[in-house]
């Protein structure tokens, strides 16, 4: 240090007193910090969970707008196309006719299309359904638990294709590639929903 620093420095502290082990307070403090960090870490891991793309599809039960209950796990033996949508979502309006056409073509072949309305009020949802003449079952996700906590969707529309054993086989993020507005990405070509369904149905027949 410089001379002026030496002259200016405060007298050093008195002889340090050595104790035995760490005091209770110190242990509590360090434990507290560790716990705090652990909680943040767990929160981070949970927040980073993304949409499931394989394995058993999370089960859910909704009440359709016609008043019927619909439970996913009761649909074993049928392929289920789960579509998350909302009346305020512009791309969903483009998808709706496609899904309805899909439903009409495939419903006798062992495929069921179900729509889950995310963050939507009932009257708005019903108006949407009437506007597009949708006939497949639709229900509201009350409290957004199914969408957010089980399927971890980022927004709408998102579509999951679940096979006859309840496993997720395909996941479509945002607009279905079959639609006119399709591809958002540069060069990517995604197999369409119909192609996927055909493959899954063919698989079932060979078994």
């Amino acid at each position: 240090m410089t001379d002026s620093d030496f002259l200016q420095q405060i007298d050093p502290a008195p002889e340090p007193i050595r104790h035995g082990g760490l005091s209770v307070g110190s242990i509590v403090l360090i434990t507290g910090v560790v716990l705090f960090a652990a909680v943040i870490g767990i929160a981070l891991l949970r927040q980073q969970q993304t949409q499931p793309t394989s394995g058993q599809a999370p089960d859910f039960t909704i009440t359709t707008f016609d008043g019927q209950p619909f439970t996913l796990s009761e649909q074993r033996g049928t392929i289920v196309v789960v579509n998350f949508w909302a009346s305020w979502c512009a791309p969903c309006r483009e998808e709706a006719p496609l899904l309805e056409a899909l439903w009409r073509d495939y419903q006798d072949r062992g495929v069921i299309v179900v729509g889950v309305a995310y963050a939507d009020l009932d009257n708005d949802s019903r108006a949407f359904i009437d506007e597009f003449g949708i006939t497949y079952p639709n229900g509201a996700d009350i409290g957004t638990t199914i969408s957010k906590n089980r399927y971890h969707i980022l927004g709408v529309p998102e579509t999951f294709i679940i096979d006859q054993n309840g496993n997720i086989r395909r996941f479509f993020f945002q607009l279905l590639p079959d639609s006119a507005g399709g591809d958002d990405d540069l060069f990517v070509k995604i197999a369409s929903v119909r192609a996927t369904l055909d493959i899954l149905l063919a698989e079932a027949e060979t078994l």
């Binding site: 305020w88 979502c89 512009a90 963050a119 009020l121 708005d124």
Partner: peptide, 11 residues
């Protein structure tokens, strides 16, 4: 400012 919010304000 989104369409969705405008719809909810209408509701």
């Amino acid at each position: 400012r989104t369409e969705a919010c405008a719809q909810w304000r209408e509701d």
